[in-house]
Nucleic acid binder design. Structure first.
Ligand code: ZN
Ligand code: ZN
Ligand code: ZN
Ligand code: ZN
Lengths: 137, 137
DNA sequence: ACAAAATAGTTATAGTATAACATAACATAC
DNA sequence: GTATGTTATGTTATACTATAACTATTTTGT
């Protein structure tokens, strides 16, 4: 029995908290092995510890995998737990990643699913290019 | 001097042709190592032969990389050489992949780039789920 | 306390991709 | 035709990403 009054977000294990905190501190995308290296001092020894924590964090929408970077990033919205449809906009020069989550994105995904007769489960939308700052250098 | 009247598509090397032909024959996505295995009889020995051929084929728009599958697929449009903006719709059950390329997709990408002040270079749009056929089984 | 179930640790291995260097093929210039 | 620079290829080794299989520990309900 788990009689705790909370906001509905599930409790995280120690490892999950460590990974979550790290991703929030860094704010940018990190590979699983970067995470492993950063957390060695906290007791991490093997990739699986990272991947298992990530699996959980991804499943509850607190972390996203950026496919084209093979990297993981903290959700910047507090909300992907519910919506789940976001796009990532990635500057190939400064490596900044913005997470975009608005009506137009979910609408686009919905339309695409209808048009292709798919029951959509998951989407990856990633845009690469040069950010505002990096265009003018 | 290369005095050949052609349609403008660049000549492909032997290795590039072998990879291209294979991807067209199979029509579905193949990993680089599947390609390597299929082409051993044609003289391929090492991953780099595959990756180098793929790099060229991708650069001219005849092949796409499906990020979320770490796999490669022949372009189904004859046209990505010019447009370049497509979406992939992937059934997680039967593994069928549709390539979708229309106005609404390029419009979406253009809008997203403007909204985020990005000079877009490349987009990955991938939708996973169940295709029409696989929903009713 | 005990059994069942979930969580975590460990070792080994599979799968994906590139670096670094050696070789060969092809073109242009002398 | 030989030299020279350039591009394409081949080869070996290695880096990076991810999971399988198994063991040990902790947690939970009875
Ligand atoms: Zn998010
Ligand atoms: Zn930038
Ligand atoms: Zn295409
Ligand atoms: Zn299907």
């Amino acid at each position: 029995m788990n009689l705790v009054l909370n906001d509905g977000s599930p409790d995280l294990s120690e490892n999950q908290k460590l990974v979550m905190d790290l991703l929030e501190r860094k704010s940018g995308p990190l590979s699983a092995y970067m995470i492993l290296d950063e957390l060695r001092d906290s007791g991490f020894r093997a990739p699986l510890q990272v991947y298992r924590a990530l699996e959980k964090l991804i499943s509850i929408g607190k972390v996203h995998r950026v496919e084209s970077l093979s990297a993981f990033i903290a959700c910047s919205h507090m909300s992907c737990e519910k919506l789940g449809v976001t796009a990532f906009v990635i500057c190939d020069k400064c490596e900044n990643v913005q997470e975009v989550s608005d009506e137009s994105i979910s609408l686009f995904v919905t339309d695409l699913a209808i048009k292709t007769k798919m029951k959509a489960a998951k989407s990856n939308i990633e845009l690469h290019g040069l950010c505002d700052g990096c265009q003018n250098i």
